[in-house]
Amino acid sequence: MTPDQVRSTYDEAYARRYDAAFLHTPQYGFREKTRIELFLLRMLTMQADSWLDVACGTGFFLRHGRGHPDITCAGLDLSPAMLAMAREANPGTLFVEGDFLAPRPEFEGRFALTTCMWGAYGLQESVAHVERLVERLTQWTRPGGTVFLPVFDPARFVSLQAEGRLMPEVTLRSPDGTRWSFLEPDGKLHEDVLAPPLEVMRAMFEPAFDSVELSPYPDSPGIPMAALTARGRRERTR
């Protein structure tokens, strides 16, 4: 999706219903997915002093995922409507409107934890753009810090389709599940979403981190995902 397509999709009406539709609903295991991610975020932020949530959306995770109550938080998002919700939910938190592929010198090496939730990376137009996002997430994480990125599991997409359990709103656009689309009841279309294989996603982080762990979420008929946690960002070499 282009930046203009993202802004058009994530408009005010969408922002108002987003949490109920994707974070709180028990349908397709979405509520359980949210619980898992909040648990992981609270563990990751328990000892952290700073956290940047990239593609922060409504600010739900920044509000509810703080394991350390005094952690300094910031959010970055492209959608003005989503950011309005985030500011309302997180008074006093820094929110910046902008493209997460663009350089942002004021963020470089600043955050103990950097996250990008709900598969926002998959809305990019190419794998090269996903690689650029990974580069930004790495740049904005301080040496020794952590990146947390829930990632799609394309192999599970294929398995769910073979088992007849794939969500009816999802259409696979490639036989290996690395491209898919999601059509919502109101006609909102997330077209040609990218899902590079898990090992490809791991490899994007490995050069810059001491360890990269992939932990699949419990089986559900919803969007199949794994938690990618890259720990120990290495010092950059010149």
Rank of each mutant, 00 (worst) to 15 (best):
I71E: 06
E32C: 05
C116R: 01
A21M: 10
T25F: 03
I36H: 14
P105G: 06
P69L: 10
M117G: 09
L76D: 11
L78G: 05
P103V: 11
P69V: 10
C56G: 07
M85K: 14
F95Y: 11
P69D: 10
L41V: 13
D70E: 09
L38D: 13
T72R: 15
L23Q: 03
F60I: 03
D19F: 04
T45E: 02
H24R: 11
R42G: 11
A128W: 04
A74M: 05
E88S: 10
G92P: 02
E88M: 11
E135W: 06
E97V: 04
E37P: 01
D99Q: 03
T114P: 00
F39E: 15
T45I: 02
D70C: 12
Y18Q: 03
Q27W: 03
T72G: 08
R66V: 08
P103K: 04
R17P: 00
R16M: 05
V54K: 07
E108S: 01
G57I: 07
L113N: 14
P26L: 02
A15W: 08
D70R: 14
V54T: 11
G75T: 11
T34L: 10
T58E: 09
R31W: 03
L113K: 15
L83C: 07
L52W: 00
L123E: 11
G122W: 04
G29K: 06
F100D: 06
G98K: 11
I71P: 08
S79Q: 06
Y28E: 10
E135F: 10
D70S: 12
T45P: 05
R104V: 00
G59V: 08
I36L: 15
L40K: 15
F30K: 10
L52S: 05
T45C: 01
S126R: 08
Y28Q: 11
W118P: 00
G57C: 02
R31A: 15
L94D: 13
A120S: 15
A128S: 09
R104Q: 14
L38Y: 14
S50T: 00
R136N: 05
A55Y: 06
Q27N: 09
F100L: 07
R63Y: 00
N90Q: 05
Y18T: 04
K33G: 09
V127L: 06
V134C: 12
C73A: 13
G65R: 10
F30W: 09
V130T: 13
R17G: 06
P103L: 13
A102H: 13
R132D: 03
L101R: 15
L62R: 09
S79E: 12
G119P: 02
Y18L: 04
A81M: 06
K33I: 01
T114W: 03
R104N: 04
F107L: 01
L113W: 11
L101I: 10
G29I: 11
L78R: 08
M117I: 13
R104H: 15
Q47T: 12
E108V: 14
E131P: 00
R35L: 15
F95S: 08
E125G: 14
P91G: 08
F107M: 00
G122F: 04
A84S: 12
E37T: 11
